[in-house]
């Protein structure tokens, strides 16, 4: 009825209804999760447990991807710079690309793969086995108990992981520079260091903070809306990873655009 009043075919409105409701639900969850940071009870044990799982658990994979992307960047940049006779500037470019882009994005993608899925499947299993209902029945707010600790833990750990990824990435680039490009170590490190100003560092740390919110909240959102048994858990898990990945790229573009202008 409403649809025809505005001259929009009703089936088009129906098509839009679901995504709009989903975004609304997601924003409500986000609001509640963030508000709970300032409300008691605080489940401190859960925060540390999650920090361990998300941060320490991702350390290896993040270090590995960091090293390799730094090394690859050094090779690629050196080749591009060679045509200008500027191979000595490799450190500069490796450092800029790592700190501004690759460090935050690759780390976030790795953590999204590990933890958006992990969170979605854990909360999803709890949902389909009525553990979420049981929590509410036994006097606990699932957002306070499950979502907020995961948001806090990811927001603390992801920037730290990015710092580590940046450093090991630079070290990976240095290995290449040292062994294959015969750039003196001192020159590599000093050009890498001089390339960065505070704005790069700020951008490099703001991004993981935003990505952390995306990863944890998307994981929790898809987990908590799981229906349809174990099959549904699988579906939620996949959707969470896909959505988190897409959103990471979108937010990366937005933050970069705002930063550049």
């Amino acid at each position: 009825m409403v649809a025809s009043e505005f001259g929009v075919p009703p089936n088009l409105l129906d098509l839009l209804k679901e995504p709009v409701l989903a975004v609304q639900d997601f924003l409500v969850l986000t609001g509640r999760a963030l508000k709970n940071i300032f409300l008691s009870p605080h489940y401190t044990d859960d925060i540390f447990l999650q920090m361990d799982g998300i941060g320490v658990g991702s350390l290896q994979i993040v270090a590995l991807t960091g090293t390799f992307s730094g090394a690859v960047m050094a090779l690629q940049m050196a080749r591009a710079l060679a045509s200008y006779g500027q191979v000595g500037k490799t450190g500069t470019l490796v450092s800029l690309t790592l700190v501004r882009e690759l460090g935050p994005v690759l780390t976030a993608l790795m953590v999204a793969g590990r933890n958006a899925s992990g969170i979605a499947s854990e909360l999803g299993s709890m949902k389909v086995t009525e553990q979420i209902d049981a929590m509410r029945a036994l006097g606990t707010d699932p957002v306070q108990k499950l979502v907020t600790p995961r948001v806090i833990a990811t927001a603390v750990m992801l920037p730290l992981l990015v710092i580590i990824a940046d450093f090991v990435g630079l070290a990976g680039g240095w290995l290449i520079a040292d062994f294959f490009l015969s750039i003196p170590s001192k020159q590599y490190w000093s050009s890498a260091w001089r390339a960065l100003d505070w704005s790069d560092v700020a951008q490099g740390l703001l991004k993981p903070l935003v990505f952390a919110l995306v990863i944890s909240l998307i994981g929790c959102y898809y987990g908590l809306r799981t229906t349809g048994g174990t099959q549904g858990v699988g579906r939620s898990t996949t959707q969470a990873v896909v959505m988190a990945t897409v959103l990471i790229f979108i937010f990366d573009l937005m933050i970069t655009k705002i930063w550049v202008s």
Binding site: M126, T129, E130, Q131, D133, A134, A137, L138, G139, T140
Partner: peptide
């Protein structure tokens, strides 16, 4: 009100003791 859920809905990350203690510790 006490509720027994269909598939028990025990918290599987907690021991039986912690599960049964949960309402005592969490219901204000």
């Amino acid at each position: 009100m006490g509720m027994l859920f269909q598939e028990s809905a025990l918290f599987d990350s907690l021991t039986i003791e912690e599960n049964v203690a949960y309402p005592l510790e969490n219901i204000k």
